[in-house]
């Protein structure tokens, strides 16, 4: 039983840390290297997802689930936009100039060296005994942070109740104000985004829409050889009443 007893359960932490950190970093590099938007978004999903794993590992269950739901779910929208904006010319590639790469690598490398140096430079951050001690005193309750988090957002810090600082011990100093500010901010941002995404509803699109349509159709005709379309075959004269009502209805649908 020697081996079994030897490999302490503490090493699971190391194992999963390496796993999640590895996936996260590798796919982040993939995001950097690939040029296909949809694949980029997909790799980003994997990277962010395994970062959520790191959050779970560090005991932040709620934040991890939040990361999955909002961040990764938000990337979903990115993905859709990627598909939408590139659907006309699939697998669109926008190559970066080599100079940019060199420059970015140099600057990024320097920054990385600096940051890693800083991260590894503080002794108390590298103190493994602290983490071993914390793990040894493992208590599942420590991860149960959803309610304290919620209360903190409403302005009460239940985790500071036994604090030495008398000001904190009242259970004050919550995050109510930031919470409200962020809420209002979100609302404003969503309204603003919805407003901005609308172009002026105009019959005079800046880059001729019909021209583009015509080009597209010519291309399509080439693909499906027996399709013959004349791009400018629209007759508004033969409209009947019922059709107009139908068109109005469709407009309503489109506005929805």
């Amino acid at each position: 039983m020697g081996i079994l007893a030897a490999v302490n359960r503490v090493y699971w932490h190391e194992f999963f840390f390496m796993l999640f950190a590895g996936i996260s970093v590798v796919f982040a590099v993939c995001v950097l290297l690939t040029q296909n938007i949809v694949r980029m978004a997909f790799y980003l999903v994997l990277s962010l997802g395994s970062t959520a794993g790191l959050f779970f590992l560090a005991g932040a269950e709620f934040v991890g689930a939040m990361q999955l739901m909002i961040y990764v779910g938000g990337t979903l929208v990115l993905l859709i936009f990627g598909v939408m904006l590139t659907a006309q010319q699939r697998y669109v590639k926008m190559n970066t100039h080599p100079t940019d790469w060199v420059l970015a690598t140099i600057v990024g490398g320097s920054l990385l060296v600096l940051l890693i140096g800083a991260a590894a430079g503080v002794d108390s951050w590298k103190d493994a005994s602290a983490s071993k001690k914390a793990l040894a005193e493992l208590d599942v309750d420590d991860a149960r942070t959803a309610t304290p988090l919620g209360l903190a957002l409403t302005g009460v810090r239940v985790d500071k109740l036994d604090s030495d600082d008398p000001a904190l011990a009242n259970g004050q100093s919550g995050y109510l104000l930031p919470f409200i500010i962020v809420s209002v901010h979100l609302l404003v941002v969503l309204i603003g985004a919805a407003y901005m995404a609308r172009t002026k509803r105009s019959a005079t699109a800046p880059v001729g829409r019909a021209e583009r349509a015509r080009l597209n159709i010519m291309q399509m005709e080439h693909e499906t050889d027996d399709v013959v379309y004349s791009a400018s075959k629209q007759s508004s004269s033969s409209l009947l009443d019922s059709d107009q009502s139908q068109a109005e209805e469709s407009t309503d649908e489109a506005q929805e």
Partner: peptide, 8 residues
Amino acid sequence: MIGSLVST
């Protein structure tokens, strides 16, 4: 840690 990750 196991508790919160592997299988409580």
